[in-house]
Nucleic acid binder design. Sequence first.
DNA 1: CGGTATACCGTACACGGTTGCATAACCTAA
DNA 2: TTAGGTTATGCAACCGTGTACGGTATACCG
Lengths: 338, 338
Amino acid sequence: MMTTNTGTKKITLRDIAKHLDISHATVSRALNGTADSLISQKTIERVQKAASELGYRPNHAARALVTGRTGLVGLWLWTEHFQGSYHARVSAQMHLEAMRKKQQLLIDLVARPEIEGSDSRFDAWNVDGIIAHESSPALETQLRAGHLGKLAVVSTGTYNLLEGVDQVRIDMATGAQQAMNHLVGTGRKRIAYVTDDLRERQHDARYLAYSEAIREIGQPPICIETEATRSAARQRIKDYLADNPNIDAIFCHNDDLAIGVYRGLCDLNIKVPDRIALVGCDGIEDCEYLEIPLSTIVLPMSDMCRLAMQFLDDRLENPERPVQNVVLQSELIVRESS
Amino acid sequence: MMTTNTGTKKITLRDIAKHLDISHATVSRALNGTADSLISQKTIERVQKAASELGYRPNHAARALVTGRTGLVGLWLWTEHFQGSYHARVSAQMHLEAMRKKQQLLIDLVARPEIEGSDSRFDAWNVDGIIAHESSPALETQLRAGHLGKLAVVSTGTYNLLEGVDQVRIDMATGAQQAMNHLVGTGRKRIAYVTDDLRERQHDARYLAYSEAIREIGQPPICIETEATRSAARQRIKDYLADNPNIDAIFCHNDDLAIGVYRGLCDLNIKVPDRIALVGCDGIEDCEYLEIPLSTIVLPMSDMCRLAMQFLDDRLENPERPVQNVVLQSELIVRESS
DNA sequence: CGGTATACCGTACACGGTTGCATAACCTAA
DNA sequence: TTAGGTTATGCAACCGTGTACGGTATACCG
């Protein structure tokens, strides 16, 4: 009597049925414990014993084919974001939440904005639901109208999204306003905004808060665009200041940029916050590990992930349930850089 | 004539076959372009047109069921590692390589060492192959003998693994020896080793290089254990130095620990490298963004991921191909911290 | 005009599960 | 003994796709 399968053959329900001289339907019911049709306790034990002895592993593809549920959920995020510290953390956290939940597996799809949703890997591997992170309204609409049809979708992130959709939104406006109030309130006048994404800025709470505050104090906006890496931001700020030294604060679109900018300022021997105050956004851990810990807008990332997976799970359980949504608050944490 | 499916019904091969009044087998062949049986160009075009008009999406579960290949590859790594900066990057990079490859999807499994491989999610969702990252020899053996049976497996990481297996190994010994030579060569005597994983240290090239070098200079080893977070390391080093101030260099098991330790030293106003030299390991980006950029052992992470996915893909194409393995070099990068 | 090669396509089954329905087994009560 | 009601199990039909095999029509050749 072997204790585990030696490996070369896959064993199926029918194998263990043959082994016990019962039907494979009984085996299926014994292992799944379906409530409607009862199986005798004795049979259940025999089947379970045989299953583990033979080393039976269920074939999810077959199960998915008949049940229509794959047990897969997708996480949707931009390729560009994926390279950044914050979104990499989001991805990792979502993985953890997914497996904590109903052992649902999580597949990541990374799509570029210019690519149509059509070659999405989600409708290829038919996921049960997806979490669309920082998806734009346009993409949302397309997603909803497109091939994916009726599919459980939860939106997460900071953008204002469609109505009538499960979502976990982070209100970044509050934090961004706090940041600008803080900078203005400490006497800064010529405040620059550093971003890697000018394209979407009209939808971005950070940029809106920035331009609003700038207008209120009657200053011209100063927008500095850069590639989305620390090293690019580091170089970019040096180039910029060479021509325009007249700046006393910088508000960055995210912490990676802020860290790059900070290092660029160090390269130029510019004292932070004495000469230039610096505020980032996202609240990644690295901010605390600079010699001048970085002020930043902390986002409740873990809560967002947990709730998103919760909402998705709820909807999979009951597709007709009323829409859930929640808004989480962001908060400015003032450290030494401002 | 609609251009896309409105969404409520899933359409199958049979639907489009009925629509064109041909058999679903023909549709299947037309879409897949099987070489053995020829389909007329005209039919192929009709089918493709109908497929896109009706919004056909293949059902991967069904395909997987009959072909036996799921198109999924798994990445195996430790839960504890997953929280760290380096391994989070590995995960992200593997994702990118996976989709760059044959649009293979990638599923992550995170297993804790004390958990048996038995509840692995890999044999649940039957992956075609897995990349086992930093798996221990014991786990390797279990993996190979266990339920997974004959499965494409590529080992990656720094540990010495089984023979006869595709692997991409990073020779960390060289870099670690460079690090110790460097510290000793610059006159350091009382060198401490900070780690979060005392358990596996006898297999760890870093620790081996450390204890070897320490023995050669006739000094006692100083091993400091901590939790695997920056903040824990930061506190731990402060506590330790309060009792044992007599240290002039620290070699850290990874960069997260090194960054935490660095900040702890800053808290104590200990000058780096003047009073204590500091060397980390992994080569994460953050090391460059400290005011005293951190010396570290840079691992060729991207190459590792690319090759691993390449090897896996090769083996899936041809299971009988000879074993491939490669050893990549690590390299000490000396920056200002040592 | 019959035979054969070729190009194209349809039929049927398999993959490994789930599940409605029929039925056997068992037990109880009349 | 038998009717009737539970309980436990078997049968068979799917789910959507791939593919071996066989069939038809056309072309070509003698």
